[in-house]
Design a protein around this nucleic acid. Sequence first.
DNA 1: TCATACAATTAAAGCGCTTCGATAAATCCC
DNA 2: GGGATTTATCGAAGCGCTTTAATTGTATGA
Lengths: 349, 349
Amino acid sequence: MSKHRPTIADVAEKSGLSVSTVSLVLNNKTNVSPQTRSKVQEAIADLKYYPRGNARGLASRVSGNIGFILTEDHFSQSEPFYTKIFLGTEFEARNYNYYVLLTTVGPSVKEEKQIPRFLLEHNVDGVIIAGRIGSSWLEEINERGLPMVLVDFDSPRHNVSLVGMDNHSGARLAVQHLCREGHTKIGFIGGDIKHPSIAARLAGFREECKFQKVECRREWESIDEHGTGVENGARAARKLFLNRNQIPTAVFAANDAMAIGCIQFVKSQKLSVPKDIAVVGFDNIEAGLHVDPRLTTVNVQKEELGALAVRRLVEMIKSETPAVTRTFTPVELIVRESCGAKNGVHHVD
Amino acid sequence: MSKHRPTIADVAEKSGLSVSTVSLVLNNKTNVSPQTRSKVQEAIADLKYYPRGNARGLASRVSGNIGFILTEDHFSQSEPFYTKIFLGTEFEARNYNYYVLLTTVGPSVKEEKQIPRFLLEHNVDGVIIAGRIGSSWLEEINERGLPMVLVDFDSPRHNVSLVGMDNHSGARLAVQHLCREGHTKIGFIGGDIKHPSIAARLAGFREECKFQKVECRREWESIDEHGTGVENGARAARKLFLNRNQIPTAVFAANDAMAIGCIQFVKSQKLSVPKDIAVVGFDNIEAGLHVDPRLTTVNVQKEELGALAVRRLVEMIKSETPAVTRTFTPVELIVRESCGAKNGVHHVD
DNA sequence: TCATACAATTAAAGCGCTTCGATAAATCCC
DNA sequence: GGGATTTATCGAAGCGCTTTAATTGTATGA
């Protein structure tokens, strides 16, 4: 054993310079001559030196970590929607030399002991929150003076940075496509209608219906209050289709999970998708590929959302005066069989 | 501002004791009188003091982190199988005051720059690896002298600790159930047959067939070399059912993804599941709930696997002489419709 | 009663880095 | 040409903790 891991002092000695100078090189500071810089870099490479994060963090009082917060029900959801966002985060964080600490939390801040340890221990330099979350968490983090970025959520009361997708255009794309397929009676299925993304999708739906001069009655907008899962989709579909004189021939669902629920319900009624009812979803989750018929949907760039969140967050961390930003990724229509059209991708213009 | 975060010195002052004593209390060391201990704890509570991880890590030369390594293709898989394992890891790690750093890696160690930063920087005290991984990674980690635990994989050459599930019993449960349903001709569908879990499932399948005195020909064992995904399942099913005089009436698939592929193929041939072909899978992934008919399968406790891995890893970290352990969680049969039986759960005895 | 052991507490020396202020050398301007 | 700047390098302090060895206090045994 004995041969122990090289420290900055070893690098200094090897290169014939001082520890401080090596540190300057390490941190890409100015006022280092090119020769010096390369001498140091050579020594670093020779020794296979890697700075110890703990020492760096202690001296510079930053943690080098980013916290990623998810509510428990989001993460335990079967669909890897948030997983993919997290993956994007992890990838992008590497480019900035940050580690990502993921944790799940309950719906709202209760006891101190439920607060993520990385917050209590000041072990993150900023926080990314994905999906719906109680505003008490936003306040908790604000109080700690940590920069934060929301992903696919918003809190008007908190004027917070966020990254999201272009829900409005996505909904319009979906409706537009159904119209192109000849549908004139289109319904909407949704849940958790206060969620900004869902609300925006409904708004886009209505707007495009109006624009296309297509019949879209309020009674064809079926909202299940209890959530946005498959079961909720099935329930909303039941509400939409049962006990009505007239039903729509096409449905735009606020997300894929509900769209799948809708398809299940329609099939359970011995009706055919897409022949009797065409269905379009939103999110492009994997399950849409395994449902029969395969789901036409609006694609969301999940990894990109995560990466974007990191970039915004790092900007805030580095900046003295962080600006509140709102960034939206574009979406595109993915045509499969559930809408009764030929396959293909329709990009948003 | 100004009011800055309390340090151990503040706690020492407040409690009228020395920094060293506070440290002893913090670390639950012996030789501290009960009165002293409670005085310190009181001060800690008053000040809302939390030790700074970086300082601790620097002084005690441990990182307080656990690395979680996944190959890229595992993580980008749609199915949240590994996500759930990770979640279990994260949960259990909290109990031991560890942070989990997740990263994905390529199939084998190539350049130094592809090595996870937490390894290069010695920023983890141990490593959990989930799923199939190139043995060069195991060597890389071994060389660094880090304790490690594999989840759902094995490397006979490396004599490494692992946690897995009882694949053998699971396969036997599945076959046993099919026999109980009256099937006498049972096929097997699998992929990546060198994977220890898959191989064990095949072994269990054969053993139970023999035990039940049921016909199971080698030509009814259809292996797709290219993987264990849905497509591979469909392809293996094609190989199994096409161009044969006699085909089995039931299939045990090595995992749910392949089972779903198999169902898709069977349906594409205008045959009925379970009437013409009964199908049983393994893993109990969510997608099995959304396929039609819903998939009968063998449940694997994914979160528990992750938690278990943490426990084993922490034992190794704390121990001077880490023992190599192999731990297996029990499985249970979950009966849904794809096997043509009534629903229910059959536990392994 | 005095040396001995043991328990409880502490002072001080780091852990490996960053950063501030000092120093020395090079460049500038009138 | 000489004081004022600027640039490159370094010494040393300190980040907040752990840990070792030393110190003090108290109980033990002969």
